[in-house]
Each structure stands twice: as structure tokens, then as C-alpha cells.
Simulated scan of single mutants.
Amino acid sequence: MEQQETDWAYKQALMLTLSNSAYEALMVLNADFEVIAINNAAEELFERQRPIGERLVTVTNSPELEAVVLSALEYQEEIFEEQIIIDKHHYRVRAQVIQREGNRFIGLALQDVSDLVRLNRARRDMVANISHELRKPVANIRIIIDSLFHEDEKPKRKRSISSLQAIARETDSLLWVIQEMMDLSMIESGQSIVRMVELDLRPLVEDAVDRMEDQSSLKDIKITFEVPKKLRVWGDWDLIRRVIVNLLHNAIKWSPKGSKITVSTSATEEEVTVQIVDEGPGVSDDQVERIFERFYQVNSSRSGGEGTGLGLAICKHIVEAHGGKIWAVGQSQTKGGKFVFTLGRAEEETNHT
């Protein structure tokens, strides 16, 4: 008898330890929907301490959760799964009906899948955005080509050159989308190699600005840069240029016509800070953290649904791979859009005689 009691106590202790080690919220109910067992995760979720003997709906304040249990009893499935929302979080709920010696118990497991739901939604938005980004330039190219083929007379040279320039711009748009997808894929798979060398920052910034000249000229936007000569950083030329190009691309997209974008730097003994400032609407304070997430877009209705939502995520990956930090400054702290990132500072090059 004593041995049986010892074995039972051991089993209870083992089950309690296992349940409290689980990330999921776990509960066991009797036939009257009263809680007879609960783990720490469930107590924290519903902010109740040892609510043994209380009804499920009283403990959880969730009629939806009780409805899941009722459905499990109704269908008598071995495991019944449903997704519900509790306190603005998405949970996958698994209910299992257990029969033991004429008694009926219901086991409940709740897993927070809010991040997964948000990621799936972001991926759907990303697919829609990329489809739009790819379809738009392809359609425009087709229209331009058709207009050339259907001219009543031979197209004039001036018109032909203009049409070819338009095709070139649309082709650049396609290449931009494809490059963003390739960049993120390589970075996240670990295939992107960071070649850390000492770099002169001024010609690097100048190179990035030159690459964005065509895009900025379409909106009559002037890009200026204020970078001291001989300011050197540790980094990979191509990757850091990609960061600056992406940030300039973002600034151009949000800037009004005829405005100005400024690239400036400041430095301490250990690091260099780069700022890209535009005269657009800026980033709201509640979005400064999420704006660097993959596929995330700031109010697509205002941006016309343009962009893949990958550019800033790529910037974050690259800067952090260099040991730096990147952030957006909220509207309450600055006028217009302002993005900042840091790089390790290298020693200035000296001339030896």
C-alpha cells in the first residue's frame, strides 16, 4: 500500500513538473467544466492562482474557449482543434476528451500563435505587393511597345528615344524588386559574405547618391550629402552602399515633389553615425520598431501600395551584420522622415613621406 502511494506521488510530481515546463497553457476539466488541474503558463495567461474547482468560463472569461470544449464533446473527436482570440492574441486550442473508469475529463492546451498569424498575413500582403510591383512595369512596357507598333507612320527618332527611356525605367523597377528578394534570401540563408575592410565613406555615399539620381529627378528631388573627407569606416562597400541606396529609395518614395533629401554624418572615436533626412511625412512613433520587419509596410493606402516591404529589413540585416545599429526617428522627435545607422570607425588614412 505504501509503495502504491509512493508511486502515485511520484507520478503526480512528474506530471506536474512536465506540465509546468511546457510553454503552452494546459488545463484539465471535469464533466462539469470545472478546473481540476492547471499549469503555471495557464495561471499566468488568465491571471488566476490555483483556480481549482472553478468553472472554465469563470477562470478564463472566454465563452469562445468553452465553445471549443462543447464542440469537442459534441463531435467526440480524439483531438479537436480550433483557433480563437483571447485578449487580442491568437491562440490555437486543442481539446481532448478522455474517458477513465466511467469518468470524463477534458484536456485543454492553448498555444499563442499571434506571431505566426501576423507573419502569414504579412506574407500574403507581400505576395500581393510583389505581384503588383511586377505587373505594373510589365503592363507599362507592353503599352509602350504596342504604341510603337501601331503607329500609322514610322515613329520619329525623338519619340522612339523617349519610349526606350520609359522602358528602361520600368525595367529598372523590375530589377529592383528582384534584387530585393535575392538580397533578403541570401542574407537570411547566411550565404551573404561580409567583407570587412577600411572604406572612405564620402565616395561610397557619393556612389549611392549617383545611383539614385534618375529616380530623384523624376520627382525633382535634390539629394545633398555632408560627409567629411578622409572619414573612414569598417565595412563591405557593396553592402553599405545597398543600405544607403535603400534608405534613399525609401526617402524618395515618401518625399513630396521638389523637396530635398540630406545625407549627413557625425563621428566619435569608435563609431560613425549616418543620417538620411527627408521632407516627407515621417514615421509615426508607434511604427518605428515594426518598420524594419520583413514585409511590413507603413500605411499602404498613403504610399499607393508601392514597395515590397523588404528594403528596410535588408538594411537592418546588413547593418547588424556589421556590428552596427539602425533605427527610425519618430514624428514626435523630428520633422520629416529620419533614418539613422551606425558603423565602426576606422583610422583616418595618413600620408607618409
Rank of each mutant, 00 (worst) to 15 (best):
E180L: 06
N61A: 10
Q3L: 12
Q96A: 06
V117C: 08
F225Q: 00
L70Q: 15
P281S: 00
A321P: 02
E24Y: 11
F105N: 03
I98V: 14
E2C: 05
W234L: 14
N250H: 14
M15N: 15
R195Y: 13
I167S: 08
A41C: 06
I326W: 01
E289G: 08
T334I: 13
L108V: 06
N351G: 01
L343H: 02
F339R: 04
N351Q: 00
R169E: 15
W8L: 13
T353R: 07
R92D: 04
M196C: 08
F46R: 03
D238M: 07
L199D: 09
F225C: 02
D32M: 04
M15G: 03
M126Q: 11
R94N: 09
N250M: 11
G53C: 10
I38R: 04
S173K: 11
L204F: 05
G324A: 08
F33R: 11
I86F: 14
V209K: 09
L231R: 05
K229I: 02
A251N: 09
K316S: 07
L175S: 09
E198M: 12
L70W: 15
H352A: 10
F341K: 01
V127Y: 14
L247C: 10
H89R: 14
L56D: 14
L201G: 06
L73G: 05
R157E: 05
V68F: 03
D220V: 00
T262Q: 00
K11I: 14
M27P: 06
L45V: 09
R294T: 12
E226G: 07
E206S: 05
C315N: 03
R302H: 07
T6L: 11
S147V: 01
M186S: 15
R169A: 11
V113K: 00
H89V: 00
V227N: 01
T262W: 00
G324Q: 10
R55S: 03
G107Y: 07
D210T: 05
I314E: 03
V274D: 02
A41D: 06
Q99E: 14
K335R: 03
D152Y: 00
T262M: 01
A42Y: 05
S160W: 10
W237Q: 12
T268E: 12
H249V: 01
S131T: 14
R92K: 03
I178F: 08
Q99P: 10
C315F: 02
V340I: 10
V272M: 03
S264Y: 14
A67H: 10
D87F: 06
E78T: 05
F225H: 04
S114N: 11
H150G: 07
V329Q: 14
Q215F: 13
Q297R: 15
E24I: 05
F339Q: 04
E101M: 08
E34N: 10
P203S: 04
Q297E: 09
G235K: 02
L174W: 04
K257T: 07
I314H: 04
H150E: 14
A9Y: 11
S147F: 00
I187E: 12
E74D: 12
L29A: 01
Y75P: 07
I221T: 01
L201V: 07
K11M: 14
K253N: 13
V113Y: 01
I221P: 01
Q179Y: 13
I143Y: 15
